[in-house]
Design a protein around this nucleic acid. Structure first.
Lengths: 148, 148
DNA sequence: GTGGATGCAAACGATTTGCAAGCAT
DNA sequence: ATGCTTGCAAATCGTTTGCATCCAC
């Protein structure tokens, strides 16, 4: 918990920015949130703690977190951008349930290996990649099976 | 070339829609376009042939093409949606050059196989998936190497 | 002639930005 | 005090939609 605050404070002073109340509270709420939050959702949760924080500030602050290495932007299928923690969070890909919205993370070194191979064959230098599978999670499969 | 028109006409009559001049010309330009077009780009090209076609109609028509099975929507990293041909075009994934915007397609059955395995392990039913690698293509690698 | 299609402009949702006021340093 | 930050509202971008008109059937 303290580690992330340190990272943020470091980044902030390194860039002659200011450590404000808003940044503090947004960081807290962000860290307390599991998984992949949208700006809207975070602003929602935030409003229970500190209702005066504006949406614009949440946008600005999440972008700051990305630059500081605390968060990572992810754009899934449709709609809004989501942010996930990036401290102590190694690379992974996602299974996304199109019914309930659940996001399952996974890692697969074999796939990564094959990706590198494909890139090499195309004389392509990979900087980042994304692998997402969309479909139904176990729970939703059960539900749709029982309703039929 | 004729095949796609047939598919469109079929879809249109099956759904008691109308085969208009606009749909005809948009289809032609779309088919004559390689790779992954954005609506804006298509509208641009279109304006050289038939300047009166509105952006809104291009949007509406590309969505129609998707429903008819002629095109497929793809949302890459940022910005706008792109559309690719889907007739005689089997499943594939993409390498996207972040410098010049080039998009290279590839297929890799081994990766698909491993993906299926991951899904299974998570008791997840995959409906669709996407794999994209972002980086520098061969040409842009050369350029950046020579400029340094 | 009738209902679907079009062009236009307005509406949209997500995100960004300009600006005057506010607060951390 | 200085200047980075904030909240607000307006602006932006890509896309969709309402509506009067138009055209394929």
């Amino acid at each position: 918990m303290i580690k992330e605050r340190k990272i943020l404070q470091d980044y902030i002073s390194r860039n002659s920015m200011k450590y404000t109340k808003q940044r503090e509270v947004i960081l807290e709420v962000f860290l307390a949130t599991e998984g992949h939050v949208s700006v809207e959702e975070l602003h929602q949760k935030l409003s229970e703690v500190e209702p005066s924080v504006s949406l614009a500030t949440v946008y600005r602050t999440l972008n700051l977190f990305c630059k500081a290495g605390l968060a990572q932007k992810r754009k899934f299928g449709e709609g809004q951008t989501r942010y996930e923690h990036s401290v102590d969070h190694s690379h992974h890909d996602h299974l996304i349930c199109t019914s309930c919205g659940k996001i399952i993370e996974f890692e697969n070194p074999m796939i990564e290996q094959l990706q590198r191979q494909v890139a090499e064959r195309n004389d392509f230098l990979v900087k980042s990649h994304r692998l997402e599978m969309y479909g139904l999670c176990a729970d939703c499969r059960k539900k749709s099976a029982s309703s039929s």
